[in-house]
Amino acid sequence: MEGIKITKEVDARGSFCPGPLMEMIRLIRSAQVGDVVAVISADEGTKKDLPAWIKKAKHELIAEEPVEGGATRFICRKLH
């Protein structure tokens, strides 16, 4: 994502739900408002649960980028 600086990223490939979601929650807990954080996951359940959590928590899902090997990078901005 051009112009967007990811403050912190966790590669959660190899861990299954809820691992990647918990990584995102941990990142958001420790981030400052406005920070952009990312989690990479190849887990199928995460593809549904992670965006759903971001929506429920009222943060911004900036992008879901495909990553080599069939994984996805979930990029999220902390809004509050």
């Binding site: 739900c17 809820p18 979601l21 918990m22 929650i25 649960d49 759903a52 959590w53």
Partner: peptide, 8 residues
Amino acid sequence: FPLNDVFN
């Protein structure tokens, strides 16, 4: 529960 279901 922390997840989107009652158990993981």
